[in-house]
Nucleic acid binder design. Structure first.
Lengths: 347, 347
DNA sequence: TTCATCTGAGAAAAGGTTTTCTCAAACAAT
DNA sequence: ATTGTTTGAGAAAACCTTTTCTCAGATGAA
């Protein structure tokens, strides 16, 4: 017996090609050809079939098409970035690039759980995804799944690839240079760097770029301060920078926007004005943080949406059989200038 | 000619049931039955087939199964919450609830674009999703798509449903009561409310709950301050609350965590201590904000993961043909106590 | 008239699985 | 020895679409 006497909604059956063909008085083969602009028939027949399809609201069953074509117009996005800080902009770009081609995206969060990862990968493969994009919350870590030797192409975006895989990451070195060079152009002389823990590869890359730019500009290089990615660390780092007896910085380049936020708050507490006394630049351009900061934070944007779009398009061409050179492609960052570093001396 | 002479990766063909059957020396029908524990055959035959399947790494083609069963083990999640503030926890709950049943989730961001929305809905329908969950970035707004009279069941989560639809939302009234009652228990006497714009339905619901609890506790009701959802507004509201000649509040209940953040910062700038002078509670429990606040912010959590799980399970049962009562179900919030409102007088 | 070519359209196979139907062999009962 | 029942397993249809093959009729040339 039914568990309840609620009305069970009844859903109308989809109209199939067979229905269209019957209505139009032709065979399914002819109907198919009419709708796909294939085969030969009088213009009159073709139009009649098309009109019938339109009238009936016919939409081809993707499952049947996929089965035949061995192509499902579906891709999987694998991530362990639960709160989507990085994977959502990426997703947005991917989806953007693919929706026009009728491709839909399975989003699978695998956390750090290999079992869960395997389940998702298996489910996607069973559903015959055309390809997989792997992403994560940090560039230098693998997802807890083995994606080598899959039956479908895999693209890595913003996460560490298998060797020989095709990967897209942001150009952290370039991004860091953008920030430090901006300070140089503004005439800042003592530029500090406060960033995350040494366990992150990006930290070293950016530190190196920071040093390089300072040397190139003949400015003194102070030791970068490594800590955590938190606001609290930014706050604390200011104490280290300004309490010591070494000369005070007039600019701080921060490893992310939260650190920058902490730095700015600490500076204000010390009565230092941003940007007139000290300029600050963040990283990530997390708008919700960068725009809420007072003053609004200048920050390096990793162009994740563009990165996602690129990854999506490349996957698509890979699926289409076009080869792609394996290796890591770095996509440029851009500096989003707000009000936390002031104007050039002359401006 | 090929655009390049790169090696084109060659992907091995999946092994089909036919392959298994051939290897085991039986018909595909028998093989299918063996693997699905259907039909009749000797235990020996069944085991031999299973062993063969295992050895060959056979995995049934989901597309073929779906085509036959008219059930794709796939659902669509439609959202316009680009940065996933609300939809990602929801997604996480949905995915959690469904992955064990082998169900995968298409994530579709429709922004505010009806054309895009229609594209995504069409694509999902063509791919024969078993059902759709609609969500959004605010409860009292429709997505820019018409989901009535679809061929599949639709569940609304955290967004305004069609009449007669099944919907899950957070119990904002209960959540607000939780916060204000907490202040009352702590012995706070002059509790203010700073929240978002009047155009949001939740603002009114929470304001009403705020008033009710104060009246129930015999406390004075001050006019709630409506503004925007931003940190800046929280900052500014403190000026209004503390510069006037009316009695100063000893507690502020905020409409979201960003406002709370602004409030706390402004209080500190005035030399007021949180929590000893003024207690503060936020809403949303956005951990990245709530935990970075100094002191860490007590906040109302809408239990979005649980809400997503509930929505997923209900959709599943709807897909399975079990009816569900239409209407809006409110799920309780919970208060996550951190350090921004202090201990009870006796504690 | 006869042969060759072209045209429009249908029949059938394919894609991979599930399920119903059928059937021969083995067995039990008369 | 005949009839009835059970058992194990295969044939075939179904899901829906695409594509190749086939073919009858029409047209053109000789």
């Amino acid at each position: 017996m039914p568990s309840d006497d609620l009305p069970v909604p009844v859903f109308s059956k989809p109209v199939t090609l067979r229905d269209v063909a019957a209505q139009a008085g032709v065979s399914v083969a002819t109907a198919s050809k009419a709708l796909n602009s294939q085969g030969r028939m009088t213009a009159e027949t073709r139009e009649r079939i098309r009109e019938t399809a339109r009238r009936l609201g016919f939409r081809p069953n993707s499952l049947a098409q996929s089965l035949l074509r061995r192509r499902s117009f579906t891709v999987g996005l694998l991530t362990n970035d639960t709160y989507g800080r990085f994977s959502l902009p990426l997703m947005s770009g991917i989806s953007d690039a693919l929706v026009d081609n009728g491709v839909s995206v399975f989003l699978c969060n695998v956390e750090e759980d290999p079992r869960l990862g395997q389940m998702h990968v298996d489910a996607m493969l069973d559903k015959r995804v055309d390809g997989i994009i792997a992403t994560g919350k940090r560039i230098d870590r693998h997802l807890p799944v083995d994606l080598s030797n899959l039956r479908v192409p895999v693209i890595y975006a913003f996460t560490q690839p298998d060797p020989d895989a095709v990967a897209f990451v942001s150009d952290d070195v370039g991004g860091a240079r953008l920030a430090v060079e901006h300070f140089c152009r503004l005439g800042r002389k003592r530029i500090a760097h406060v960033t995350g823990p040494a366990s992150f590869a990006v930290v070293h890359a950016r530190v190196q770029a920071y040093r390089d730019v300072l040397v190139e500009n003949g400015l003194p290089v102070s030791e970068p301060l490594l800590g955590s990615w938190s606001e609290a660390w930014g706050h604390q780092a200011v104490a280290q920078l300004f309490d010591g007896k070494s000369e005070r910085p007039d600019a701080v380049f921060c490893g992310n926007d939260q650190i920058a936020r902490g730095v700015i708050d600490a500076l204000r507490e010390r009565g230092l004005d941003v940007p007139s006394d000290v300029g600050v630049i963040g990283f990530d351009n997390w708008e919700i943080v960068a725009e809420a900061t007072r003053p609004p934070l200048t920050s390096v944007d990793m162009n994740l949406v563009a990165l996602g779009r690129e990854a999506g398009l490349t996957l698509l061409s890979l699926v289409g059989g076009k080869p792609a050179a394996p290796g890591i492609r770095k996509l440029p960052c851009r500096l989003v200038v707000r009000q936390s570093c002031g104007h050039p001396p002359g401006g």
